[in-house]
Amino acid sequence: MKKLFILLIVSLISLYPIHSFADMAEGDMIVTLGANLTEEQKESLLTEMGAPSDVQIVTVTNQEEHQYLGKYVANSLIGTKAISSSAITIAPKGAGITVKTKNINWVTDEMYVNALITAGVKDANIYITAPISVSGTAALTGIIKAYEISADKTIPEEVKQAANQEMVETAKLGDSIGDKNAAALIAKVKEEIAKNKPKNDAELKSIIEQAAKDLNVTLSDAEMNRLIDFFNKLKDLNIDWNQVSDQLNKAKDRISKYLQSEEGQGFLEKLKQFFIWLIDAIKSIFS
């Protein structure tokens, strides 16, 4: 009887094979939803993401968010509820990472890209959202969790911690030197570390100072010390620096291609017209 039962189970498995996330192909999507979302909010976000009806959903808890962020950011910023959500779509091999956000008010798209590259994420289109305006710090936890499933790989805990720390440090730095400058500075330093791994604090400080000089920003002593501490931790981790460099280059290529595209040129023209209008408006005040 037992043998008959086993044969029946084997037959059923062969008829209905279990889907493996390692089989995810280009265009496939996996979604993360905060555990504290209402059913109505979940449905609304899934519609917003354009998720298919059979999309795989990964739930992220507030406990997990605190696990990865508690060391780097105030508990009040993480909150007591998990509501940040995301959709990760597998991109073509070699495409790099793109990030778009909605209702995220502190962490920028570029900050997510930088942190995800550190975590080892590659070739993915990521959409991050929430039903209300949130800082966005907790979203990274879910994205990394979903990527591990979709890519069928385990990202070391210390690398996850480093990615979350990087995101928070960049956001804090953005409060003083501007979001774009902060993200660019972190990317520049990582790119240089990938090329020439610094041997000591003096070399690392020199790399950071040069990146700041290139961006025409000034770092306080406290900011410099925080960055040295962070990058020292980063360079000693088991990170594929060749992949980091490759993904950073792809991110830069995407920006360049966008600016050269018709859409990008249209954006620049609108920006130019805005500044012309602004200058004329200022002139009219004093005329």
Score class of each variant (00 low, 15 high):
residue 68 Y to V: 02
residue 37 L to V: 06
residue 107 V to N: 06
residue 281 A to R: 12
residue 181 N to E: 14
residue 185 L to T: 06
residue 243 Q to H: 03
residue 133 S to K: 14
residue 216 N to T: 11
residue 239 I to N: 01
residue 8 L to E: 10
residue 236 D to S: 14
residue 277 W to N: 13
residue 55 V to H: 08
residue 261 S to K: 04
residue 279 I to V: 15
residue 29 M to R: 08
residue 252 K to P: 05
residue 70 G to M: 08
residue 76 S to C: 01
residue 255 I to C: 03
residue 144 I to M: 15
residue 233 K to S: 11
residue 240 D to A: 01
residue 232 N to H: 08
residue 130 A to P: 01
residue 142 G to K: 02
residue 271 L to G: 12
residue 221 D to N: 15
residue 227 L to Y: 01
residue 226 R to I: 10
residue 182 A to E: 06
residue 262 E to C: 04
residue 195 K to I: 08
residue 93 K to N: 12
residue 28 D to W: 04
residue 186 I to W: 05
residue 65 E to Y: 07
residue 132 I to L: 09
residue 60 V to Y: 01
residue 145 K to N: 03
residue 122 K to G: 00
residue 215 L to Q: 06
residue 203 E to R: 07
residue 110 E to P: 08
residue 137 T to M: 11
residue 48 E to R: 10
residue 246 D to E: 15
residue 151 A to Q: 10
residue 55 V to D: 09
residue 164 N to P: 02
residue 154 T to S: 15
residue 181 N to R: 05
residue 229 D to H: 13
residue 191 E to L: 14
residue 270 K to T: 08
residue 183 A to V: 04
residue 79 G to R: 09
residue 68 Y to Q: 00
residue 48 E to C: 01
residue 204 L to Y: 09
residue 48 E to F: 12
residue 251 A to L: 03
residue 176 S to M: 07
residue 209 E to T: 13
residue 280 D to V: 10
residue 273 Q to H: 12
residue 233 K to T: 13
residue 206 S to E: 14
residue 131 P to V: 05
residue 31 V to P: 00
residue 50 G to Y: 05
residue 245 S to K: 14
residue 158 E to V: 10
residue 272 K to P: 01
residue 188 K to R: 13
residue 68 Y to M: 07
residue 105 N to C: 05
residue 74 A to V: 09
residue 34 G to R: 01
residue 113 V to T: 13
residue 74 A to G: 04
residue 16 Y to C: 09
residue 283 K to V: 11
residue 37 L to N: 09
residue 226 R to H: 12
residue 133 S to A: 15
residue 125 N to P: 03
residue 50 G to Q: 01
residue 255 I to M: 11
residue 117 I to P: 00
residue 4 L to W: 12
residue 195 K to Q: 09
residue 140 L to D: 07
residue 275 F to E: 12
residue 92 P to M: 06
residue 274 F to D: 10
residue 188 K to Q: 15
residue 90 I to P: 06
residue 215 L to K: 06
residue 281 A to N: 12
residue 210 Q to K: 15
residue 252 K to T: 11
residue 3 K to T: 12
residue 113 V to D: 08
residue 187 A to V: 00
residue 200 N to G: 07
residue 96 G to H: 00
residue 202 A to S: 13
residue 209 E to Q: 14
residue 67 Q to W: 09
residue 130 A to V: 06
residue 82 A to N: 05
residue 213 K to C: 00
residue 227 L to H: 03
residue 76 S to I: 13
residue 208 I to P: 02
residue 85 S to K: 04
residue 33 L to R: 00
residue 237 L to G: 01
residue 63 Q to I: 13
residue 200 N to L: 03
residue 129 T to E: 08
residue 3 K to E: 15
residue 224 M to C: 04
residue 282 I to K: 09
residue 287 S to T: 11
residue 129 T to W: 02
residue 98 T to S: 14
residue 275 F to P: 02
residue 261 S to C: 03
residue 95 A to G: 03
residue 221 D to M: 10
residue 66 H to F: 04
residue 103 N to D: 07
residue 150 S to Y: 00
residue 117 I to Y: 03
residue 6 I to D: 11
residue 149 I to L: 15
residue 103 N to W: 03
residue 169 E to W: 05
residue 264 G to A: 03
residue 9 I to P: 03
residue 174 G to P: 02
residue 72 Y to N: 07
residue 96 G to V: 01
residue 7 L to A: 14
residue 233 K to V: 09
residue 267 F to V: 15
residue 104 I to E: 07
residue 14 S to R: 07
residue 209 E to V: 11
residue 10 V to H: 01
residue 201 D to S: 11
residue 68 Y to C: 00
residue 106 W to Q: 13
residue 166 E to R: 14
residue 125 N to L: 08
residue 164 N to F: 04
